[in-house]
Design a protein around this nucleic acid. Structure first.
Lengths: 226, 226
DNA sequence: CATGTTACGAACTAGATAGTTAATTAATGT
DNA sequence: ACATTAATTAACTATCTAGTTCGTAACATG
């Protein structure tokens, strides 16, 4: 079909045009939300015309879904590179938490898209078949770490993989997604460099502490001195 | 000005109309986002006409800001009722976490508005003078609990009040705000009753565990057996 | 009860916005 | 060289949407 091995200087290049539309559209959707983004605006930010958007994607909604699909798959591929299996349970989960942190830090546009998609009750994600079972790999990993940690005695709290994933994600997500209202209300920019490292350590310590079971009433700390 | 002590059956009632507009507008903005909400739609959902929206609020944006102001202040007033001061540090912070959880659980429309506002980089909140220093009371409370806990030896981790607040909020916020994408990806509805109680306990234990310092590398658990 | 003011409704408008039509030019295969 | 298909452009349209105009009826006040 359209498969010349990248003859870089062609005047007409379906793949390139398509990619450029996706890129600009992603930026615009992330900036303004689904309803707030303008098809005309997206077109004006490229050398292509609006017609091409409809030529390749059919409608604003389908374009938006394509953007979501691309963003999600990109992000999951990045996650796959992580190897924490060789680490001891405590270090494994701490590292995973910190990597998740980095990940959220590095893909802010993606975070915004997720937030936007939640406002729309994930109706577009549900329309996409590509994005159905994209969550499982992380859960498998966490599951293995949890079992290893319980077996070694490092983890005391009986935890569910999904819950732990949620705990880590929530912290990382919130810091990026809610930086603006949080900043406006509490006068602190969580996303700023000066807080980054401390908060990064914090996620790791949080999960580890939780799994070690220091939170439950029947496991008081060892050096208690009341 | 317009101050009859609620003569319930008046045909014209500025306060009532204004209140109704705000109520419907809040629902619509929370549902569809700022750009997605339609002034006409808001009008059609009431017995009042669109004209009244402009009569009382001037513009779509000012209406939206009014909605935000109302939602935020309502929510902060609810928070003020909480009394955890008489509790011991560990129970105080755990209770605060669980109350924050309940609070998020009970005000989902508000959560959505916050999420929406973050997509717009909090530009509307910043335009409002009402919403400037609304965050402080919670921070004071957490600060006191932290100091008490450190003094009593219950808390080992040196933590900042804002960080702790963020940690609690992120968990509670995420569960509600991201329920849809999370559900779509991991097949679990975090907001459902069946997970509610477990996750509620989880926030409490998480904060307590973190503050007890079980997460840092130099504080291994007491019954360690590797 | 006359008069001014406040609250309200119906219909209108200018500009924006998603989506289209139809003609045109570049690449490709034969 | 030529016909076919894929990629692209420019101009157009129907509809939607925030915001307005203007008239009117209820209420308060002297």
């Amino acid at each position: 079909m359209t498969s010349q091995p990248a003859a870089a200087e062609r005047q007409r290049d379906a793949d390139r045009t398509k990619a450029e539309i996706l890129e600009v559209a992603r930026r615009e959707f992330a900036r303004r939300g689904y309803a707030g983004a303008r098809v005309d605006e997206i077109a004006d930010l490229m050398r292509t015309t609006k017609r091409m958007i409809y030529y390749y994607f059919g409608s604003k909604e389908q374009l938006y879904i394509a953007v979501l699909e691309q963003a999600y798959t990109e992000v999951r591929e990045a996650e796959r590179l992580v190897d924490v299996e060789h680490l001891a349970p405590v270090e494994a989960i701490r590292t995973l938490a910190e990597l998740t942190f980095d990940h959220h830090d590095a893909h802010r546009e993606f975070i915004k898209l997720v937030a936007i998609e939640n406002i729309h009750q994930a109706e577009h994600i549900r329309k996409s078949e590509v994005l159905a079972n994209l969550g499982t790999p992380v859960l498998d990993l966490i599951g293995r770490i949890l079992r290893a940690g319980t077996a070694s005695g490092d983890f005391v709290t009986e935890a569910d993989a999904i819950d732990v994933h949620m705990m880590i994600s929530s912290f990382c997500f919130f810091r990026v997604a809610n930086q603006h209202t949080f900043g406006a209300l509490f006068g602190r920019d969580m996303a700023a460099q000066e807080h980054r490292d401390r908060l990064r350590r914090m996620v790791g310590e949080m999960v580890v502490a939780y799994l070690r079971g220091a939170g439950s009433p029947d496991h008081p700390p060892d050096q208690g001195s009341r």
